[in-house]
Simulated assay, not measured.
Amino acid sequence: MKIGELAKQTGLAASAIRFYESKGLLKVGSRQSNGYREYPEDAVTILRVITDAQHAGFSLEEISQLLPDDASSWKHDELIAALRKKIADIEALEERLARSKAELKSLVHLIDSKPAGVDCKENAERVMASMAARKR
């Protein structure tokens, strides 16, 4: 199939398809005499795997290491290990984000609980002093 049909079936721009090809992630079946690329039927599936993997947080380099030359040569153990590692990375990120969220909520509460009669400058000093005390 030509790049226009591949773009239509995947929802990707032709430039994105050529980019994945330039990175070695997508193979061109052949070139016609007029120079047009002819992609194999499994190119749709390969592009979906690439975009799904990117959405899951895999870099193009990680994808290129895991993506086989053809579907019959998947390296099961390496694939499972990479998926488990990505899950662990996501869980660690979730923990960091939860800590950051809690710290920000605490800061909002601290700023928002400005005592009556305290102006903005004094409140800022109060907040900064409280933050400095927490870091000790």
Results as ranks from 00 to 15, higher is better:
residue 2 K to E: 15
residue 2 K to T: 13
residue 3 I to P: 02
residue 3 I to V: 09
residue 3 I to N: 00
residue 5 E to T: 12
residue 6 L to H: 00
residue 7 A to W: 04
residue 8 K to L: 11
residue 10 T to P: 00
residue 10 T to I: 11
residue 10 T to Y: 03
residue 10 T to A: 10
residue 11 G to M: 13
residue 13 A to D: 11
residue 13 A to F: 03
residue 13 A to L: 13
residue 18 R to P: 00
residue 19 F to K: 12
residue 19 F to Y: 15
residue 19 F to W: 14
residue 20 Y to A: 01
residue 20 Y to H: 02
residue 21 E to H: 11
residue 25 L to E: 03
residue 26 L to T: 02
residue 26 L to R: 01
residue 27 K to S: 07
residue 29 G to N: 04
residue 29 G to F: 09
residue 32 Q to L: 05
residue 33 S to G: 13
residue 36 Y to R: 05
residue 36 Y to I: 01
residue 37 R to G: 01
residue 38 E to V: 09
residue 41 E to R: 10
residue 42 D to Q: 09
residue 43 A to K: 00
residue 43 A to H: 00
residue 44 V to F: 12
residue 47 L to Q: 08
residue 48 R to C: 06
residue 48 R to S: 06
residue 49 V to E: 12
residue 49 V to Y: 08
residue 50 I to T: 01
residue 51 T to A: 09
residue 51 T to K: 05
residue 51 T to C: 06
residue 51 T to M: 09
residue 52 D to R: 10
residue 52 D to Y: 02
residue 53 A to W: 01
residue 56 A to R: 04
residue 58 F to V: 03
residue 59 S to Q: 12
residue 59 S to H: 11
residue 59 S to I: 05
residue 60 L to N: 15
residue 60 L to K: 15
residue 60 L to A: 14
residue 62 E to G: 04
residue 62 E to C: 03
residue 64 S to M: 07
residue 67 L to Q: 09
residue 67 L to S: 07
residue 68 P to L: 07
residue 69 D to H: 11
residue 72 S to L: 10
residue 74 W to L: 14
residue 74 W to R: 13
residue 75 K to A: 11
residue 75 K to G: 05
residue 75 K to R: 13
residue 77 D to Q: 15
residue 78 E to M: 01
residue 78 E to C: 01
residue 78 E to F: 03
residue 78 E to P: 00
residue 80 I to V: 15
residue 81 A to D: 06
residue 83 L to P: 00
residue 83 L to D: 01
residue 83 L to R: 07
residue 84 R to K: 08
residue 89 D to P: 02
residue 91 E to H: 13
residue 91 E to K: 13
residue 92 A to L: 10
residue 92 A to N: 11
residue 94 E to H: 01
residue 96 R to W: 10
residue 96 R to C: 13
residue 97 L to D: 02
residue 97 L to F: 09
residue 97 L to K: 15
residue 97 L to V: 04
residue 98 A to T: 08
residue 98 A to R: 07
residue 101 K to D: 04
residue 103 E to H: 06
residue 103 E to I: 00
residue 105 K to H: 07
residue 106 S to A: 15
residue 107 L to D: 03
residue 107 L to F: 00
residue 108 V to K: 12
residue 108 V to Y: 10
residue 111 I to Y: 05
residue 112 D to K: 08
residue 112 D to N: 05
residue 113 S to F: 00
residue 115 P to W: 03
residue 119 D to A: 08
residue 120 C to A: 06
residue 122 E to M: 05
residue 123 N to V: 07
residue 123 N to Y: 02
residue 124 A to W: 02
residue 125 E to K: 10
residue 125 E to I: 07
residue 125 E to M: 09
residue 125 E to H: 07
residue 125 E to A: 09
residue 126 R to C: 04
residue 127 V to D: 02
residue 131 M to Y: 07
residue 131 M to P: 01
residue 131 M to T: 08
residue 132 A to I: 11
residue 134 R to S: 15
residue 134 R to L: 14
residue 134 R to Y: 03
